[in-house]
């Protein structure tokens, strides 16, 4: 298993590396297009601000490479958001993989959403063998429900907790921080 975590300077990737290490998989960190293209599986992480993360992708050419990947790709948190058409955060375009626009939570709820919420309506092999359960999230922006939605969660409104289009997967939550349940989701991704 050749697993690559895209390292483009947007946030903490050590915890994702450790999460796979706990599953006995050594993940390689790279921003090299060749290494990424040749990987069996790719993780597209991201924490921080959307428009500045997008700038980093544009500067490194990853904005072209990522949508073109053929192997399973898992975007986590901001990674998932950047795979959408656009984001209200810094009014930036995204990679246009998922056909939806990322929006900010309205102030009827506390923003950011921080903590454990339930994912429901699971519809993907990413959740194979899993029932609805709690996952850890920390985010101010969300992807509305779309045709690519494979899991939902509710915080004021029902939104996409995970998305999938072909070989591209995205989770708004952090599977690497969602206890044993999150570890099972990562294991499922590896088994795809």
């Amino acid at each position: 298993m050749n697993l690559v975590i895209i390292d483009y300077g947007a946030g903490n990737i050590q915890s994702i590396k450790f999460a796979f290490q706990r599953l006995g998989i050594n993940a390689e960190l790279s921003n090299d297009s060749k290494v990424i293209r040749n990987a069996d599986k790719v993780i597209f992480p991201g924490v921080g601000e959307a428009s500045s993360a997008m700038k980093k992708l544009l500067a490194s050419g990853l904005d072209v490479i990522i949508p073109d990947l053929k192997q399973p790709v898992l975007g986590i948190c901001l990674g998932m958001q950047l795979m959408c058409n656009s984001s209200e955060e810094g009014n930036t375009n995204g990679l246009g993989i998922f056909d939806t626009e990322v929006k900010r939570f309205r102030n009827a709820v506390k923003v950011p959403q921080v903590g454990w919420n339930k994912i429901e309506n699971l519809e993907s092999d990413l959740f194979k063998g899993l029932e609805s359960d709690f996952i850890y999230l920390v985010h101010s922006f969300y992807a509305p429900k779309a045709k690519e939605t494979i899991a939902t969660s509710t915080y004021g409104i029902e939104y996409s907790a995970a998305l999938q289009k072909d070989n591209f997967f995205g989770t708004q939550f952090h599977p690497e921080k969602s206890g044993n349940y999150g570890a099972k989701i990562l294991e499922n991704f590896i088994s795809l």
Binding site: Q14, S15, F18, A19, Q21, R22, Y136, V138, H174, E176, K177, S178, G179, N180, G182, A183
Partner: peptide, 11 residues
């Protein structure tokens, strides 16, 4: 922090 992160699967 490094040692904790290695073992811990919650934030």
């Amino acid at each position: 922090v490094f040692k904790v992160a290695e073992k811990l699967n919650i934030p």
